[in-house]
């Protein structure tokens, strides 16, 4: 009786692994296909039946992609966009969140409603006026324009407020009694406690800035002011059917975030997970 039950659980576990492995293959396959295609010649890439592995490693596709697109500049533009947005979001959101969570002040609910409104409406609704603003400031086609709309984060303010509300008040009360003002309490007491919240917010902000396509597409049209996303989209225009070069370009554009993810995967996953459970 007992052994038959064991057999059944064993069979179930085996089935679970089988499904998980099958799912993993489906998730991974497009990446593997990107890698193998990026090393094939055009003729080999169009052969039928397709070859699973390239006959000869053709690294020339990578040089060709790099000649056509100045990836160094794109890395730089993207890093500035992602980095500046992330830092600004962390800095300004924690400040505002602290005030919303811990200080009573007139019109607090009114100001917080502004934060909520930003979170509830679809982002495209801001785009035309934001674009016109960039045009008026003469910022179109500059790296500044890439950063601008991400300078404040309503989501970050909301998330960090929830985070601060979940922290016990004893430490700050002690600090207040010792004569710290609100800024000192925020900076010396709350910020060190909020580290995990800030990591989560930073990862979330960086990931979505990294994936942003429409904004860089509309503000920056010169090749040297593009991001990796728009530069790659541009490469598609030049090499419509040369998939080996396009795949090489895709990998050149993709690897930094994938590497960061693999190095800090625990922080990534826990960070993203915490943005869900706090709401």
């Amino acid at each position: 009786m007992k052994s038959s039950k064991n057999k059944r659980t064993n069979r179930n576990t085996l089935l679970v692994y089988l499904i998980l492995v099958l799912g993993s293959l489906l998730m991974l396959f497009p990446f593997l296909w990107t890698i193998t295609t990026s090393l094939k010649s055009i003729t080999e890439s169009m052969r039928i039946p397709p070859t699973l592995l390239p006959e000869a490693m053709r690294f020339a596709n990578y040089t060709e992609a790099m000649i056509r697109v100045d990836f160094g500049t794109l890395y730089y533009n993207t890093a500035v966009m992602v980095g500046a947005r992330t830092l600004a979001a962390i800095m300004f959101s924690t400040m505002a969140a602290y005030a919303f969570a811990r200080i009573d002040f007139p019109l607090k609910n009114f100001f917080f409603a502004m934060v909520l409104i930003q979170m509830m409406v679809p982002g495209q609704i801001f785009l035309i006026p934001q674009f016109l603003l960039m045009a008026r400031l003469d910022w179109l086609d500059t790296v500044k324009a890439l950063v601008a709309p991400g300078i404040v984060s309503a989501f970050g303010t909301f998330l960090m407020r929830q985070f601060f509300l979940s922290l016990p008040k004893d430490l700050e009360e002690a600090a207040r009694i010792d004569g710290c003002n609100q800024w000192q309490t925020y900076w010396h007491v709350m910020m060190p406690l909020a580290r995990s919240g800030m990591v989560a917010l930073g990862i979330f902000t960086a990931l979505f800035a990294w994936k942003d396509l429409m904004w860089p597409l509309i503000v920056n049209t010169s090749a040297d002011k593009m991001t990796l996303s728009t530069g790659l989209a541009n490469l598609k225009g030049t090499f419509t059917t040369n998939y080996p070069v396009l795949m090489a370009g895709s990998l050149i554009a993709m690897w930094p975030m994938i590497l960061l993810f693999i190095l800090f995967q625990r922080q990534f996953i826990e960070g993203i997970a915490s943005t869900g459970s706090k709401n």
Partner: peptide, 23 residues
């Protein structure tokens, strides 16, 4: 497994779209 399933989330949508176009 978690890492593998999360991989498309950290990938540039433009790059992801490119390989699917090809497939």
């Amino acid at each position: 497994f978690r890492t593998i399933y999360f991989l498309p989330v950290v990938s540039t949508p433009v790059a992801v779209a490119m390989v699917w176009r090809w497939l």
